[in-house]
Amino acid sequence: MKLAQEQLDFISSYLCKKELVQIDLKMEVLDHMANSIEKRIETYGDTFSDAFNAEALIWERELSNSTNPIIGFLYSGPKMLIDKCARKLKFFYLYTSVVALFFTIFFGFILKDLNSNIVFEFLRYLYGCVFTIILSVIVIIHFAIKKTQIKSSFSFLYKTQAVGFAFFYLIYNPLFLDILGLFKNGNFTYISFLIYNAMLFFLLFISLFIRNI
């Protein structure tokens, strides 16, 4: 027996109540629940209400409200959404840290030996310009997502992370405020170089793997 439209709408509103509104996850869970309910009705002769309650119990854990330190404790949502987003972020953080560290160690030695003010000035402008472009792209994508009004795992991840990252690209932008400074008190600072590289590679990885988010 196939479920009627009203029964599908009932499942849909249940998922919305559980805050699973992201289209990519919601359609999958809705279809799974509907299939399972149909089978219960066919096999055991359950009523829709009984079959739905049994199915809701199975999904209770995955739909329960959850938070994750990687996403930030300010944001909560269904466990399956939070876990999916946290896994993605963890992947980006890991790759960014490893590549940025190697890049910093390798080029750091060269830059330290070079110890040239012209090169440091050039790098300040280079990182500054790239960070300004990234900041602009973050703002543009933010408004593009808002305009489409489509809710997905990606839009959730973006909503929870974009403001924080935009803030980083603004205050650590060497063109606006040279807080970190690659060259301070006559010394090349590895830690500033590492932070700049981490900020650079993080967005590079996201743009490379954006279709998989």
Binding site: M27, D31, A34
Partner: peptide, 25 residues
């Protein structure tokens, strides 16, 4: 589902969405 999403992200699976029985599959 986490396993399916992971395999999809790794490029091992392709996805196709179809409307079946009044819902997306």
């Amino acid at each position: 589902y986490p396993a399916l999403h992971k395999l999809e992200a790794e490029g091992l699976l392709d996805v196709e969405v179809k409307k079946v029985d009044n819902r997306l599959r």
